[in-house]
Nucleic acid binder design. Structure first.
Length: 553
RNA sequence: GGGCCGAUAGCUCAGUCGGUAGAGCAACUGGCUUUUAACCAGUGGGUCGCAGGUUCGAGUCCUGCUCGGCUCACCA
């Protein structure tokens, strides 16, 4: 049976024919498991292509580009490698190169690839049904397509050209690719397919061949998708390690909240049926985390998603990942110090260096980050001083217009107007400015921190001021949060807090200029397929039956 | 939401002045028992994003729409 909304053409037809022939040969074409060996002694107890390559590549003789190793070198390598029997699984990473009665194929585990050598006279196939049994291995092999998953058993060796390979003796079919694979040289260039079908993007990255040495293609060190998301994982892991080591505790506060507050943004609205109340997807966890400092968590962080119902751009996704953390008894200056230390550590762990390239710019994290006030920044880049009586909103405008694009090297901008910082303490030396900073790098606003306002009566007044703004039509002005005022009334220690935009941090470190390149499944308009059109017309979807299945999963 | 640009074979892309729809890779058939983007010979594959219009004739020109990219505004 074919799936109606998956396209059919000569290529899918050929793959389907192969699948049916395989079914006749091996029985179950979607077996439940394949047991892998563990000769590379992985902690997980099973060999992967990556672990085998890492463990045994060193036996392959090293030769200059275009040269071949000597017979003695090959014999030496093979005398060790031939003793090593492996059971490995992976995706067929290229159209098999068949030469009559033998063939070379590369297998991929998504990260690395390893060549296998299949010879007609010494490969047997394995049935997948209970009891197993052997079938014609070469016939099985000849039914495989680029992209299929197989398991192999055999011994390691190096070929005449010195490439580490597996000489296959047993071959097992594991799963079919019914759709053709992306072009092996070009991958997928269409950004729409890359983002909508991230799976295809990731496959394309793992199957793509590097241009040969003679190629005229300019040298590009751009990370592919997999590498960018691996970098993202390293960034997040290092942030957690850093904060945990500093004595912070990680918490999770509500995503669905009765009030959307803690930031200036429009929220997503949803509805709770049983309670019959509207809820908002949170725009920031800030006020919940500060309630926890009231409760006695002196160092607390949350690394999770926020949701803002605003425009989508190369720098904005409706859901984005933010780190927020709060540090009792510290002020804004301590927080800048800590953030600077954390950034240096993250950059080093994620990229292996202290300088990075972002587009045209070389960004250096090894030097102390610049710290300048907002008015100084405007004066520096506009060339004239700010009028001392300038409106707060106008100061921000001037800053964004003249200064922000120039903030390439890591820079803290301090002394924000108090009027636009309703959760921030005023500066002891100048009551018109807040003890607040924003951190800029690569021209991107990347973090925002301040000395937290902990006086419940002043906070009450600031909220009232915000309500006035809201009544004047500012949809992003904050709302009164009575429970938060109550929490502050129990007493909150002096504290500094910060919010760090993780997606933008990853963009910077991965040298990506669109947030969609660092979010696996970025928000996009729904695709209009045949199937969804039928659903929209009401002929397919029947109601709640399928929801229970999803809940159980 | 505004402006600019794009959509052609499974993938990457050509398509001139409006005159029979093209290439490479992939697929299919045959050959080849250590290949390296393997090679050699042959074959098939298209709703030119969708809908109208102009024209004897539209992939090409015009209008509208859909989806996407960049950019401006709002924001992190």
């Amino acid at each position: 049976m074919t799936v109606p909304f998956i396209e059919q053409n000569d290529q899918t037809e050929a793959r389907r024919d192969h699948l049916e022939a395989l079914r006749g040969l091996v029985g179950n074409v979607y077996p439940n498991k394949f047991e892998r060996s563990n000769v590379s002694d992985t902690p997980a107890g099973e060999d992967t292509i990556t672990s085998i390559v890492a463990a045994f590549k060193k036996f392959a003789p090293r030769v200059a580009e275009g040269e071949k190793p000597s017979a003695d070198e090959l014999d030496l390598a093979n005398s060790e490698l031939n003793k090593i029997r492996v059971r490995l699984a992976g995706r067929i990473a290229a159209p098999p190169r068949v030469m009559g009665k033998a063939a070379f194929v590369h297998l991929s585990d998504g990260g690395s690839r390893l060549q296998i050598y299949v010879r007609r006279q010494d490969v047997v196939g394995v049935r997948n049904d209970a009891g197993g049994g052997e079938v014609n291995g070469w016939e099985l092999f000849s039914l495989l397509d680029h992209g299929d998953f197989i398991g192999v058993e055999g011994f390691l060796f190096v070929t005449k050209t010195g490439e580490l390979s597996v000489h296959v003796e047993k071959l097992q079919f594991l799963a079919k690719a019914l759709l053709p694979m992306p072009d092996k040289m070009h991958g997928i260039n269409d950004p729409e397919i890359r983002q909508r079908q991230r799976y295809a993007d990731l496959i394309a990255g793992s199957l793509k061949l590097e241009p040969g040495v003679g190629s005229q293609e300019p040298e590009r060190k751009e990370l592919n998708s997999r590498q960018a998301f691996e970098l993202r994982a390293r960034v997040i892991k290092e942030i957690r390690r850093f904060l945990d080591e500093q004595g912070y505790i990680e918490v999770e506060t509500p995503m669905l909240t009765p009030l959307a507050t803690g930031a200036a943004a429009r929220p997503f609205k949803t509805h709770h049926n049983a309670l019959d109340i509207d809820l908002f997807a949170r725009i920031a966890p800030e006020l919940y985390l500060k309630r926890l400092t009231v409760g006695g968590f002196e160092k607390v962080y949350e690394l999770n998603r926020n949701f803002r119902n605003e425009g989508i751009s190369t720098k904005h996704n409706p859901e984005f990942t933010m780190l927020e953390f709060y540090w009792a008894y510290a002020d804004v200056n301590d927080m800048m110090d800590l953030h600077e230390e954390m950034m240096r550590s993250v950059v080093e762990v994620a990229t292996g260096g202290v300088t990075i390239r972002y587009g045209e710019h070389e960004i250096d994290f090894s030097q102390p980050f610049q710290r300048i006030t907002m008015k100084e920044a405007i004066a520096r880049y506009r060339g004239s001083e700010v009028n001392p009586n300038e409106e707060p909103v106008r100061i921000i405008e001037l800053f964004e217009q003249f200064a922000e694009p120039h903030l390439i090297q890591p820079t803290f901008i301090t002394d924000f107007p108090k009027a636009i910082s309703p959760l921030s303490k005023a500066s002891p030396s100048d009551p018109s400015v807040a003890e607040r900073f924003e951190y800029f790098v690569g021209g991107l606003e990347s973090a925002n921190g301040f000395s937290e306002l902990n006086d419940p009566e002043e906070q009450y007044q600031r909220f009232k001021d915000q309500m006035v703004q809201r009544e004047r039509g500012d949809e992003e002005a904050m709302v009164m949060d009575e429970d938060y005022i109550r929490a502050l009334s129990y007493g909150m220690p002096p504290a500094a807090g910060i919010g760090v935009g993780i997606d933008r941090l990853v963009m910077l470190l991965a040298n990506k200029h669109s947030i969609r390149d660092v979010i696996l499944f970025p928000h996009m308009r729904p695709e209009r397929s045949e199937g969804s059109r039928q659903e929209a017309e009401g002929s397919v979807r029947t109601g709640s039956g399928s929801d229970r299945i999803n809940d159980a999963g």
